[in-house]
Design a protein around this nucleic acid. Structure first.
Lengths: 349, 349
DNA sequence: GTGAAAGCGCTAACAA
DNA sequence: TTGTTAGCGCTTTCAC
């Protein structure tokens, strides 16, 4: 039989005064105890903790933030949560943040400026102490608004002329060079590139770094074999089809991200083309799934743990540094090649 | 040349008093205007909005929450963010929430009670107005703590004896019956099941519903052909291998979730077994990726939009209902079969 | 319809 | 070392 509906007059949750009363100290002492101030005697501290325990008390974050001016909240804005790279990135970011006593507010912009504006607004209202903008896109107007409100920012691959902002530079170059070297070592000469949309900073950087790597290897880049896709699986399928129409067929293709590469894998399979025997495929990101594609994908790894870590560190420094302190405003995250089974000598059996 | 370091003495962000002063009204009027109180004359309202615009003002959420006792925050706890189902679910939940003026706090528990406890604690501190616990697991102790603090709760497939909690029931039964009927229609008689871990409520329910569907179809369930996996891709691979050792080989297999099915697809491919010719495979969830597996996966669709929507509605009702109001405490989310290319008649060419 | 004033739960400056 | 007290920025009575 269900309990009666009386519910013992909904006891208002314990507040700092309740604790103080029970511990027979002032609220200031309770506050100090909670915040680990050294200026509290063991005797009182013990009494306070006991009272806290007994009342199942925990402080009200809103009150705390209001008076201290610190929310211990960071925002993170990603581009597109459908690309597995981003959930994985958020996950890493959250882990670091929570481990360091911060909370996170997540938003995905889907590259829609209107959505982005709302996100930013919401974050501003919640008084975030910093925002990691990991969209890799061009959202400068909105960023200006954040910068305007003196919110520390960390951007991927983009520098804002604001002392409160930091930048994470991604060294794709290392990864691309390794990838090209790897392919050349296998005997490939004709290497195509499936690029990302040119609205993304990262896509442009990646394409440039691919070209540089090719140049360094002394290989020409056939303009027709650099095809702009959109970083989605579907886009990879389309890219593969364009690849097939090329007069001189490349024996290997490097993709601007893993989703594109997975699209190529899939389209290739549907056309009866064998990877890696007929075509070697290289991705970029190293999302968890790469291990399980058919065949497992050779890819340029962009460590999301490193990226998350760097973003967090950048924000934390900005948030916690003394006003005039000199802080690190540029961070470098590296890439490396992970060789799996989607690459082999051309014509290999 | 960079601007000088003076930065026009960091103007403290505008607050309600600034707005009131500029609009030449009292702060009460500003507050009323912002909150859409009808008791403000058009004349003043206009002045206030102008001032707000001009100052680029927005209210401080912490102050608001502190005084009103309402945070407009919901928490959502999911099990494992590596399974694409969950990011997709979070995404949907966030959309509904934001569209309705709520914010969300996300946590993934990874089925670790310690992590869960911290999550709950953090959510409590932020004064969430409700938590959606979509872990499908057994975290009753922690839930008790939430319930204890009078926080509205919505749980998937689990009923808590607390007036502040609601339950979302998942009708897997419809989906399983459709799947079995589909397979039987194709000519299958030996249908195996790769179950989820028995620590999850949902896994147990799914297994039961599978058995019921089989019974209804008049088909026996060979105990050996029900194999417990763990809802991961790796687990699916292992499950497939066990399947291969069975004396009498099933011609079709239904999996407790898509990741398991994808594991089967992959393992099958490595063994040179053809799907669907040699083995029909059915998943459950219908994650985005199903469309792109090789071959595209036939699956029992559990709409995450519906699930997110139901969770949100449940929480909102709890949060906003008048104290004594009668509210809906049970929600039903249905499943349906999505037929793609991983199922075919046994031995079909 | 509008304003004055009393807090929401907490931190931090100041006194003791 | 401890306590008193003044707000943090806002909503919400209660007068007018």
């Amino acid at each position: 039989m269900p309990r009666k509906g009386t519910r013992k007059t909904v006891a208002k949750a314990a507040d700092i005064r309740t604790v103080a009363a029970l511990a027979k100290v002032s609220i200031a002492t309770v506050s100090r105890t909670i915040n680990g101030s050294p200026a509290v005697s063991d005797r009182l501290s013990k009494r306070v903790w006991q009272a806290i325990e007994q009342l199942n008390y925990f402080p009200n974050t809103h009150a705390r933030s209001l008076v201290s001016g610190r929310s211990r909240l960071f925002g993170i804005i990603v581009e597109n949560i459908t690309n597995p790279f981003f959930p994985e990135l958020i996950q890493s970011f959250e882990e670091v943040a929570v481990a360091n006593g911060y909370e996170i507010l997540v938003s995905s912009s889907n590259s829609d400026p209107a959505i982005l504006t709302t996100c930013v607004r919401r974050m501003l209202e919640r008084k975030v102490e910093g925002v990691a903008v990991l969209t890799f896109g061009e959202e400068e107007p909105v960023l200006d608004q954040l910068a305007h409100h003196n919110v520390p920012l960390v951007l991927a691959e983009f520098k804002l002329d604001d002392p409160k902002s930091s930048t994470i530079l991604l060294d794709y170059s290392t990864g691309f060079k390794a990838a090209v070297r790897h392919l050349v070592g296998l005997g490939h000469r004709k290497i195509a590139f499936l690029a990302g949309p040119h609205t993304l900073h990262s896509a442009i950087t990646r394409e440039n770094d691919f070209r540089n790597a090719m140049q360094e290897a002394g290989l020409p880049v056939d303009p027709a074999s650099v095809i702009v896709c959109d970083h989605t699986l579907r886009g990879g399928v389309a890219g593969f089809e364009k690849l097939q129409t090329l007069g001189t067929r490349p024996t290997a293709v490097i993709c601007s991200n893993d989703m594109t590469a997975i699209g190529v894998l899939r389209a290739g399979y549907m056309k009866g083309l064998r990877v890696p025997q007929d075509l070697s495929v290289v991705g970029l990101d190293d999302i968890d799934f790469c291990e399980f594609t058919l065949p497992p994908l050779t890819t340029i790894r962009l460590s999301r743990t490193d990226l998350a870590r760097a973003s967090f560190d950048a924000l934390r420094q900005q948030a916690e540094a003394a006003p005039a302190a000199q802080i690190q405003r540029e961070f470098l995250v590296s890439t490396s090649l992970v060789i799996r089974e989607s690459t082999a000598p051309p014509g290999w059996v």
